[in-house]
């Protein structure tokens, strides 16, 4: 190789360093299933829970943030929604389980726009549904005795008219 080769390598290295400092700052998010996803810092701005930790280490270029409650599948869905500027059509394509999990993450990470969007979508989904559908959707165990439930249904009989089929 010789001296010329070494010189050339040094130039390239400097160039690469320059590029890196010019590039958009990235944050590494580690999901519950151990996947590391690199996202732009602007994305993390909407995650207010993370933001609260970030300010102290703002100058650091290699932030790694663990998200033990978020799976890589859900995080990538969230990225899709964010890059699609929270298009309603994208929300409609989510499965019930995805919608619920994204809502949970939006609540946990305090992402206001995403929380508003998913909470509204769930409200629309359940408003004409039966009690059984709602229990199933939210994983809620019925803790009424059969007598108590019959009595409650009787008291609000009018509210059971016009319910969609599950």
């Amino acid at each position: 190789m010789g001296e010329r080769g070494e010189e050339w390598e040094a130039v390239m290295l400097r160039k690469a360093e320059e590029e890196e400092s010019k590039a958009v700052k990235k944050v590494k998010l580690v999901t519950s299933d151990g996947v590391t996803m690199e996202v732009e810092i602007s994305t993390v701005k909407e995650m207010e829970t993370i933001q609260a930790f970030m300010n102290a280490t703002d100058t650091d270029n290699s932030i790694i943030f663990p998200l033990p409650k978020v799976s890589s599948h859900i995080l990538s869905r969230i990225m899709e929604l964010m890059s699609g500027e929270y298009d309603q059509e994208l929300v409609k394509r989510l499965s019930h389980e995805e919608l619920k999990e994204i809502c949970m993450v939006a609540n946990y990470l305090n992402m206001k726009t995403l929380l508003h969007l998913t909470a509204s979508a769930i409200a629309n989904l359940i408003q004409n549904k039966s009690v059984e559908f709602v229990r199933h959707f939210f994983n809620i165990i019925n803790d009424f005795t059969p007598e108590e439930e019959v009595q409650l249904r009787k008291t609000h009989e009018w509210a059971f008219e016009g319910v969609d089929e599950d």
Partner: peptide, 30 residues
Amino acid sequence: EVLPLDAVMNILKRVPVKSLMRFKCVSKEW
């Protein structure tokens, strides 16, 4: 995967009151 109560409230405040009357039968907490 049970949604925390504050997220549940955020959803339910957007639901018509007639449906909320029905959802009283979901559980004691509701």
